[in-house]
Design a binder for these strands. Structure first.
Lengths: 171, 171
DNA sequence: CTATGTATGTAATATCGTAACAGGTCAAGA
DNA sequence: TCTTGACCTGTTACGATATTACATACATAG
């Protein structure tokens, strides 16, 4: 079984790619987006985002906190929660509630409705485009007179790799 | 029998209705569904479901636990978590992660994809029909080769009542 | 009856999250 | 310059949520 702690390739997207490049690129876009919004991407906040981008997977708040503390920032929970809350509020990160975790947004600035796909075998998390899902959700809500402001759409299931492994094992 | 996907009145989410009647009716359907699945709806489990149905809202595990303990069952967390997990696994209840809470399923046995609409003002929670949302989600996942087994779709926003109050206050 | 699997009870603890307050930084305006 | 106010960071302390591990009880098939 692959594990996001040990097998980075099985993480955020279900495909191999250049982490260093996509992390660096995404950070640049996040900084631009923060500037555009007039949001202050202070050192702790920026470092928290970098941590999420470097890890390239969903991380718990305390895990982020440990890294922040190691970098000389505060070592108490509010330090991490505040930085993460800022990132989420400004569309630079997402909260994955099923995992009590946070993940850097891969598309900061783009108006997107992320859908999180969580593999129940290897715990990999992918951020999938969910525009169509969001449209359907808004419609379902509108039918009841409800106005959606924020949505969490999370799916548990099998990622391609684990589905393949499962078939092979069963066969 | 009404179908939650097509009959909006069956999901009187934000509307007034007869709690006692709908709770009793839903409990009967839940028992039938448990029987059909060969799931053992033991006393603790049944009582936990009743508690959720009577409250008719999302409840925290510890809140359910208090009531179970008051009824003579165990008073330690696993008692509540196990009963609630059973209910969720068997489609008799849902977990609302945004609220760290559980709610009785209003349509046990019917193959449905619940969408939770959570009012950020009054905290009311409605279980809306989400078949269309689920279809869109399955498609988005399939595009990445991901097979969805379970989904949590939760929206935060304004319920009709609070949206109205807000408009009045602003006007 | 007895072995087996399942359900329940309990203790202890792990994990996650927040309230409240203190001090620091920075920019706008008296 | 000095103050004021808004915002950010750090820390203490605590509350809320959830799980592990183990012991006991209970059902049911053989």
């Amino acid at each position: 079984m692959s594990n996001p702690e040990t097998d980075p390739d099985a993480t955020l997207a279900f495909a191999r790619h250049d982490h260093a490049h996509c992390a660096c690129d995404t950070l640049a876009r996040a900084e631009a987006e923060a500037l555009r919004r007039g949001a202050r991407l202070t050192p702790v906040r920026k470092r928290a985002l970098e941590i999420l981008l470097e890890a390239h997977r969903a991380m718990g708040a305390y895990e982020v906190l440990d890294r922040l503390a190691a970098d000389g920032f505060g070592n108490q929970p509010p330090v991490a929660y505040r930085a993460l809350e800022f990132l989420v509020d400004n569309g630079l990160a997402h909260r994955v509630r099923r995992l009590n975790a946070f993940a850097a947004c891969m598309h900061p600035g783009e108006d997107h409705a992320p859908v999180f796909l969580i593999c129940r075998v290897c715990d990999a998390v992918a951020e999938a485009p969910g525009a169509a899902v969001r449209v359907a959700l808004d419609q379902a809500a509108a039918d009841l007179g409800f106005a959606v402001e924020r949505a969490n759409i999370e799916a548990l299931g099998l990622c391609p790799a684990c589905a393949g492994a499962d078939q092979n094992a069963t066969a």
